[in-house]
Design a protein around this nucleic acid. Structure first.
Lengths: 182, 182
DNA sequence: ATAACTGTACCGATCGTTCGGTATAAACTG
DNA sequence: CAGTTTATACCGAACGATCGGTACAGTTAT
């Protein structure tokens, strides 16, 4: 079995408990692997596990972005497709974001660059769609930030309230909000 | 020295490292108190420390809300005052939010109710200002959520990018955004 | 036979917590 | 007034448990 097979349980653990909250016992239980096996697959330990998950996440986001940029239709339609996939990745607002979880505790310095790269990739993707739709560049970049902000904030609120509805509403309104004129 | 005197360093620790990321050694170092002394002031241990900080935060937010609801002027002006105080509490986007930090790991079940109460208080405050300004109630409530979402998301992005500017922009635009018609 | 994999036992370090005790100053008691 | 108790603040040392990580022999699959 390859490293990639263990990414889903690892992703779920780290996004829910954060770096410091995830123990090797939890990982062992979630993956069904003993400690020795974990260190066989991930000689770098916890850090390598996170890095593997983060890399898989980057590939997933890149694929979503690529599909969005290749897709046809007007800007709201293309952004709607992106939002649908993003929403699915967060289980319609019922699961937290790994990036936010990794910005706390011992993890924050170690994975700062990878987290920043992912956020930037995401912002740029939204901005590119808007620019292709004729939006002025600086505004489009702001809207890119606004899109990520809305999603991250909505996830926080949904988690905090224990209610995914705010997230689902934001996701549904987002394509239209991003495209509206000043 | 009373419990309240140790709230600021505790707040800074928990918001930056999260519940699981904060160790008693760090707390000891940050407060200048020995581990045993910490248990004199907080017999309930780490949990009581977090609860104390959370209660202090609730009082702080209640004060901001009260001042906002008492203040004069049109809705954008009153919301501007609220945003200014909120922004100051987050050091203009350079410090993370305790509520977001407490939604991970071992803390999330323990403090769920307190976190939810704080978020609800915040949302209601914004909604009340908008309703008093004549906005329809359901929309005002959505805008209350949108306000908290924007702030939380902007904090996440600012932390992730290592750049507080997106937060400062959002805070500056927020009063106008919240008041705009559909 | 060889490489990939895993279970068991173990390590030093650190975790949150508790114990026993000291220093100081105010509050009672004779 | 001196002498004693009480309350508050504080700390060094240690507790059992768990942490992340390693060593190694044994099993499995090719």
């Amino acid at each position: 079995m390859s490293k990639q097979a263990h990414v889903p349980p690892l992703l779920d653990l780290f996004r829910q408990f954060g770096y410091d909250g995830v123990t090797l016992s939890k990982i062992s239980q979630a993956t069904g692997l003993g400690k020795a096996s974990l260190y066989h697959h991930f000689p770098g330990g916890k850090d390598e596990m996170v890095e593997t998950v983060l890399t898989a996440l980057e590939q997933g986001l890149e694929q979503i972005v690529l599909e969005t940029l290749r897709s046809q239709g007007d800007a709201p339609t293309r952004l709607r497709q992106m939002c649908d996939r993003i929403s699915k990745a967060y289980n319609d607002g019922q699961k937290p974001c790994l990036l936010a979880s990794l910005m706390l505790g011992s993890a924050k310095e170690v994975f700062r660059e990878q987290v920043r790269a992912l956020l930037t990739l995401w912002i740029d993707a939204i901005a590119t769609v808007l620019i292709e739709a004729g939006m002025e560049e600086n505004l489009a970049r702001q809207r890119g930030e606004d899109g990520v902000i809305a999603i991250q904030g909505a996830l926080i609120l949904a988690q905090g309230l224990g209610n995914p509805l705010p997230f689902q509403r934001v996701i549904q309104q987002l394509p239209h909000e991003l495209c509206r004129p000043i």
